[in-house]
Design a protein around this nucleic acid. Structure first.
Length: 571
DNA sequence: GCCGTTTTCGGCCCGACTGTTTTCAGTCG
């Protein structure tokens, strides 16, 4: 049983309990546990088998520890089976409609026997919903609208796409007079791989002007709310954008608050309470008295903490680090010296070898590896040994005439379905850098996938594993692989794991990267560029690395190539 | 359900906005 499966079970329990109107703190305990386990760096199943004390995990007490054990050992949980019998799964979907929480959803189920979204739609159209106590005409409309938008509004967008929106929004708002300070917060500011909505924070004395300007942003389809300090719009693409206008003395507190994460804020506010203080988006208060909040630094300082970089604010280890003065000095884009994964038009890339080299040089890179696909990747016109050697001869010639950048002879060799690699060892032995990646047979069972990856890690010519989990954000979760085994093998054979910077991949993700670091495994951040513009994506990878708490030292391509060579045992 | 230099019970972050009310519950972030 994977951590994700255990997390999902607890989340489902939380959903049902919430629907049933259980103690909200009990619900939260399940949600917290779900989150903690989902983010956990080690295999919970393994911990159980080792007989470790699970209550040492923050947020796991006697009860939940017992439930985890039951889940791992029997594959199911009697409590969850019972709960499922009480509330049909389709009923829980009601709570996913914006505006419908547990109370209203329960009322619909109880009073009108509404069991799924189709019945909800019919009831709204028959105007049965507005007759319920606490419901009205507007609620009915909101539900109908929510039903038609449900799929769209739940979709999260890549961070890279959110960045485009954010930059366009800031540019639009800068035309508005009287704005003193402005920042986009939320999961965007935390650099999360996908973003659900945008939060814009503004300091201005003319709230009405700011809100009018905000409403005029291109693509605004609907104003969902407009109050004295807060306004919410939905763009025609379904993206929701929140605006808050606050006074200057609250800017730091509001930015802190709107950056989140929610979990981070709960911890922070609990900390304030311990000190007899109160933190809200308006500032830090002792009783009624404002004592600070102009900057984020001020907010953290009043709680005896150094400023914490937004990327770390997930209520994972950041408070521990902050208290002991151990916040890592996070890697920056400027630290990157080389890019060790990219393609040319010899396979499925768009640019020639020369064009890629020129673009990389322009970016200030000191070295790059050309890593086209091997022959198994027929769709991409993958290279066999002979074609690859011809490309390498080209690279030799290129290195003779191009100065200021070193071009390495590399390959992205396919890890075959039956195990083993797609190129002979004598070919691989001539490469400077070998990325081994798994592209086919992604639906194989866990044991088989893991075995294939371990086989690649054992090959002496392999330098790194490319996009180690195969996930595609919002599309597929990645193949079923025993990452602990992969980490152990990478450590044993002194291999590197990739953080693929493609905004749709970001693989390894932040949590896995942090776990790899714990295991002492070096990470390479690579663009996997298929065009010259693809080289720009490095910043998405660096952002994800920052979320993992990685420093310059943890990432191999911050070193000169000679340093990388030593690491992979080449002369 | 978790947690503890105000410990084994009684807390658990805080506020804005809307709609349905006529002072507030529910939802959201």
């Amino acid at each position: 049983m994977t951590n994700a499966q255990i997390a999902a079970a607890f989340d489902e329990i939380a959903d049902i309990l919430e629907f049933q109107g259980a103690n909200p703190f009990r619900v939260r305990a399940y949600r917290n546990a779900s989150r903690t386990l989902g983010d956990f760096g080690e295999s919970i199943e393994a911990l159980v088998h080792e007989g470790r004390d699970l209550t040492e995990i923050q947020g796991i007490g006697e009860d939940l520890a017992g439930k985890i054990e039951t889940l791992v050992k029997t594959g199911s949980l009697p409590q969850l089976v019972d709960l499922r019998a009480q509330v049909p799964k389709t009923v829980l979907a009601l709570m996913r409609i914006p505006g419908l929480g547990p109370k209203k959803a329960a009322a619909l189920y109880r009073e009108l026997s509404i069991k799924d979204l189709d019945m909800l739609k019919a009831a709204c159209e028959a105007h049965k919903v507005r007759e319920l106590k606490g419901f009205g005409e507007k609620t009915e409309e909101t539900i109908l609208k929510g039903l038609s938008l449900a799929a769209e509004s739940q979709k999260r967008i890549y961070w890279a796409a959110a960045d485009e929106y954010a930059q366009a929004l800031l540019k639009h708002m800068r035309q508005c007079k009287g704005i003193e300070q402005m920042e986009v917060g939320g999961s965007y500011r935390r650099g999360k791989d996908t973003v659900g909505d945008l939060d814009l924070l503004v300091v201005s004395s003319d709230v009405a002007a700011v809100m009018d300007r905000f409403g005029a942003f291109s693509g605004v389809a609907e104003v969902l709310a407009r109050g004295e300090t807060k306004m919410v719009v939905r763009l025609d693409t379904g993206l929701q954008v929140d605006l808050r206008v606050v006074p200057a003395e609250s800017f730091g507190a509001a930015l802190q608050y709107f950056t989140g994460s929610k979990q981070h804020n709960i911890v922070l506010r609990g900390r304030a309470k311990d000190r007899g203080l109160k933190v809200s988006e308006w500032g830090v208060f002792r009783g009624e008295k404002y004592i600070g909040g102009r900057t984020e630094e001020e907010v953290y300082k009043l709680l005896d903490l150094p400023w914490i970089p937004p990327e770390l604010r997930e209520a994972r280890q950041e408070f521990e680090w902050a208290e002991s003065g151990q916040i890592p000095e996070l890697i920056e884009v400027a630290d990157i010296q080389g890019d060790l994964h990219m393609h040319t038009n010899q396979t499925d890339g768009a640019a020639t070898l020369e064009e890629m080299v020129e673009a990389a040089k322009k970016r200030g890179l000191k070295y790059i590896a050309i890593t086209d696909h091997s022959k198994r990747v027929t769709m991409a016109n993958g290279l066999d040994g002979a074609r690859l050697r011809r490309q390498w001869a080209e690279i030799d010639k290129l290195n003779d005439r191009v100065k200021g950048i070193k071009v390495l002879k590399g390959v992205e060799v396919d890890i075959l379905e039956k195990g083993g690699l797609d190129l002979a060892d004598d070919v691989l032995a001539e490469a400077d850098w070998v990325v081994a990646s798994l592209h086919y047979g992604q639906n194989q069972p866990r044991e088989k996938i893991t075995k294939r990856l371990l086989g690649a890690l054992e090959n002496p010519h392999v330098s790194a594993i490319g996009h180690p989990t195969g996930r595609l954000l919002e599309r597929r979760s990645g193949y079923d692989v025993d990452l602990d085994a992969v980490f152990a093998a990478a450590k044993e054979h002194k291999k590197i794991l990739e953080l693929n910077a493609n905004p749709a991949r970001l693989d390894l993700d932040d949590v896995a990267c942090a776990a790899a670091k714990e295991h002492g495994i070096p990470i390479v951040i690579s663009t996997d560029a298929h065009s010259t513009q693809g080289l720009e994506t490095i910043r998405y990878g660096v952002l994800q690395a920052r979320r993992a708490g990685l420093t310059k030292e943890d990432v191999v391509n911050t070193r000169p190539w000679s340093g990388v060579m030593r690491l992979i045992g080449r002369k």
